[in-house]
């Protein structure tokens, strides 16, 4: 190759490699939806259904018990008191159960919060069916107001027999504008 040909060849290859880097950047952003799809399909990150589930006629499996533990965390920026009324309970898979969380706004202004649930272990997330939940919409508390917030759920009998304990954790965030 003479000098000019080599320069052209170098330029072409450099542009191709540069395009490769741009594709890698796009791939990095594509990983975001890919991750969400993967998590929804596998329950990888413990995310539960975000909307009201249709109550299906499921048979109650009286032969086994599952321990359900409840926790509540208030995230920075939200000065509420927030905790489950019952910390732990035993239920049969298929049984419709109702529990409640307590929240209080001790400040002197109205605050809107949004609870985000998470299930541990992740593989139980798909089998934790929420029929009704305070996490489905934002919750507003007047100054000094307190509230008992309900949660109705069924543990699906399809939950793997290896799972004896399911932990449901709520993190209460200050509501995000416009969501």
């Amino acid at each position: 190759m003479n000098g000019e040909e080599l320069r052209q060849a170098n330029k072409r290859l450099a542009l191709k490699l540069g395009a490769g880097a741009v594709v890698a950047l796009a791939f990095g952003f594509a990983l975001v939806p890919l991750y969400n799809v993967l998590c929804e399909a596998t329950g990888l990150n413990g995310k539960t259904n975000a909307e009201r589930a249709r109550p299906a006629a499921v048979k109650v499996d009286k032969s086994r018990w599952v321990t359900v533990q409840f926790t509540g965390t208030v995230m920075p920026g939200l000065s509420w008191a927030f905790y489950p009324k019952v910390a732990s309970m035993r239920v049969h898979p298929g049984e419709i159960t109702r529990v409640s969380y307590y929240a209080k706004n001790p400040t002197n202004q109205t605050i809107v919060g949004q609870a985000v649930p998470s299930i541990t272990p992740g593989q139980a997330a798909q089998h934790f069916v929420k029929l009704d939940c305070f996490c489905f919409k934002q919750q507003a508390l007047e100054p000094g107001a307190e509230k008992e917030m309900g949660l109705t759920f069924i543990i699906s009998p399809e939950l793997s027999k290896e799972v004896g304990t399911v932990t449901l954790s709520y993190a209460f965030f200050p509501a995000v504008k416009g969501s």
């Binding site: 880097a21 950047l25 952003f29």
Partner: peptide, 9 residues
């Protein structure tokens, strides 16, 4: 070339 752009993203 393959991984630095992912960090940048």
């Amino acid at each position: 070339i393959a991984t630095i752009p992912v960090l940048a993203g």
